[in-house]
Each structure stands twice: as structure tokens, then as C-alpha cells.
């Protein structure tokens, strides 16, 4: 029986000219089969590094090392040799990245780029499958369209091609890192709809990084909030969004006064910027920006269990609830 993705106390260390940094610091995330999970947080919080670290997409020239556990169906991905890792990529876990133009081979037709993922050797069968895939992601599935090159398509269409590529391996888990950034606002919503539709239809699990909290509340069951390399709050989406336990989550939600408003119309942002990895060594990493910061925050805040699956890394709720670990 599949148990899905389990990440525990997972850290990523990178080599930089200024020394080793830890943009991902003891992160724990779980995605059970068919579950839809969101990972949110401002830019630079380490969301991409978390996903890349788990799926081993950090070039050796940059990676210093990972620690903790990142396993799929009980198999630790970090321990796999190259060949066994390839069995997971594409076929069990597929990835959709942002910036679709750069993600597609400029000299290959989009049809060929989807088709090459298919396992079957039968040309007819492959063609039927590609056609079906194009249709399911909302693309024109005519032969002429499939013969076009990435630069001939719009940003939204390219992103759909990337989704089709991800689906072509019939994976169990789809990991999407800001799949709609850099697209028109209206297109963004359509693409996210497409992703959630296909994921639901196929009963796939989804781990998505997005800034669109509206989409998170509509389509995801569980949410992790990340700040400066740490998970600061996690829980069922409804519970977290109704009553955020961490001041950072409260700040993020306050930025979206009305979740149905497009991004441009969100007026407020949290003042200040995310501290770069390594710049805050002790105490709460959010305290320089936290409206509720007080004396105790100079010490590392505990991870407290609020109710059920909900946890928050903050001194405030710990007054009313017990520690999680």
C-alpha cells in the first residue's frame, strides 16, 4: 500500500562563495496518496530548495549536502542510486516548473517532447496517448499544433505543454513549483484550474508551491507555511485560513483581503524582507517583522500543536496549547 511522500527534519546545505548556507532547515512535510498539499511563503523562503532537495535536483556544484529523511513509499530517495532514482522521476513523481519557455527544448516540437516520455513502443498508441494528453490539459490536439515549437506558443500554452509532459508518465504525485508565475493573471487561474482538475480526475497527489492563496483554499486540503527555511505553520487549509496560529500566516492572509481579487489588487504586504539563510542564528526568524514580537522571541520558539494536525512555531500559541514535540 502506498504511503506517499514523507519528509522529516529535512535540511539542505548549499555551497556559496561566502560559505555554506542552509536555506532549508529541518523541514517536515507529508503528502499522502491523492492528497492535495500546498506549500506557501514569500519569495526566498526556501520553497524551491525544499522541492529540489527532496527530488534531488540540486547540481552537485552547488549542493553541500542534505540531511534528514525524504522518502517515497518508505524508500529514502536520498539513498537511491541514479538508475533507481530514474524509476521514480516522471513515472511516480512528476515535476512542473515555472518559466516554461526555458523548460522546453527549443529545437524540438512540443508534441515530440510529450511523446518521448511515453513508455510504449507502438507508434499508433503513442500518438493516441499524446492526443489525449493534449486534450486533457486544454490544448489544441491537432497534428499541426503538436508540430509547433515552444517559441511559437503563448506562455500559457507552454505551461500546459509542461503539464502534459508531467502527466505523460502517469505519475502518482505531481510536484508543481509556482507553475503560473510570469503568466497573465487570467491565464494563471486557468492553468491552476487545469492542474487541479487533472489531479482530481486521475486521483493523483499534488504538492504545489503557489502565491495564490485563493487557489490553495479552493483546491488543497493541507497547507504548509514556510518562512526563512523553516515550516512555521501547518494544518488543514480550512482550519489554518480560518484561524491562523502564526503571526506570519496572519500577515500573509491579511495581504489577501479578498481571495477572489487578482494579485494586482492586493494592497498590503508584510513590511520588511525575508532574512537570507544564516543571518538569524537564534530566536524566532520572523521577529524582526513580527507585530507581536516580545522578549521571549529572542529564544527559539517551540513547535506547538494547536488542534488535530495543526502546528505553529511561535511562542504565542504555546501559552494556550501543548508542545508538539
Amino acid at each position: 500500500m502506498s504511503t506517499g511522500l514523507a519528509v522529516r527534519d529535512f535540511s539542505v546545505a548549499l555551497k556559496t562563495p561566502a560559505g555554506v548556507i542552509r536555506p532549508v532547515d529541518e523541514v517536515s512535510i507529508e503528502v499522502r496518496p491523492s492528497q492535495r498539499v500546498a506549500l506557501v511563503g514569500e519569495s526566498g523562503c526556501g520553497k524551491s530548495m525544499t522541492l529540489r532537495g527532496i527530488l534531488r535536483f540540486i547540481p552537485p556544484s552547488v549542493l553541500d549536502g542534505v540531511s534528514g529523511e525524504a522518502s517515497y513509499d518508505g524508500v529514502d530517495l536520498a539513498q537511491l542510486d541514479d538508475r533507481r532514482l530514474r524509476d521514480y522521476r516522471g513515472r511516480r513523481i512528476a515535476m512542473v516548473f515555472q518559466d516554461a519557455l526555458a523548460r522546453l527544448n527549443p529545437t524540438m516540437t512540443v508534441g515530440a517532447q510529450v511523446e518521448e516520455v511515453l513508455a510504449t513502443r507502438d507508434r499508433r498508441a503513442r500518438e493516441t496517448q499524446v492526443t489525449a494528453l493534449f486534450r486533457s490539459v486544454g490544448l489544441d490536439n491537432s497534428r499541426a499544433f503538436r508540430r509547433r515549437y515552444p517559441h511559437e506558443l503563448s506562455g500559457g500554452m507552454r505551461q500546459r505543454v509542461l503539464i502534459a509532459i508531467a502527466l505523460a508518465g502517469d505519475p502518482e504525485l505531481l510536484v508543481a513549483d509556482e507553475p503560473t508565475t510570469a503568466l497573465d493573471v487570467t491565464v494563471q487561474a486557468q492553468i491552476l484550474d487545469t492542474i487541479t482538475d487533472v489531479v482530481r480526475e486521475r486521483g493523483m497527489a499534488l504538492l504545489v508551491v503557489t502565491h495564490d492563496l485563493g487557489v490553495v483554499s479552493e483546491t488543497c486540503e493541507f497547507v504548509y507555511v514556510m518562512y526563512a527555511g523553516q515550516i512555521v505553520e501547518s494544518g488543514l487549509v480550512d482550519a489554518v485560513f480560518d484561524d491562523p496560529g502564526h503571526p506570519y500566516t496572519q500577515g500573509l492572509l491579511a495581504c489577501v483581503l479578498d481571495v477572489d481579487e487578482p494579485v494586482e489588487q492586493r494592497v498590503r504586504t508584510i513590511p520588511g524582507v525575508v532574512p537570507p539563510p544564516g543571518s538569524v542564528t537564534t530566536g524566532c526568524r520572523f521577529r524582526s517583522r513580527c507585530p507581536a514580537a516580545h522578549d521571549r522571541c529572542a529564544a527559539d520558539p517551540p513547535v506547538v500543536r494547536l488542534d488535530g494536525d495543526r502546528t505553529a512555531r511561535c511562542w504565542l500559541p504555546s501559552d494556550t496549547a501543548g508542545e508538539a514535540s
Binding site: 529540489r52 547540481p59 552547488v62 526555458a102
Partner: peptide, 10 residues
């Protein structure tokens, strides 16, 4: 691909 771009010195 933020991976290497971020570390290129000005």
C-alpha cells in the same frame, strides 16, 4: 533556474 544565477557576482 535560480540555482547558479543568484551566486554570480555583480
Amino acid at each position: 533556474m535560480s540555482l547558479t544565477r543568484d551566486v554570480v557576482p555583480g
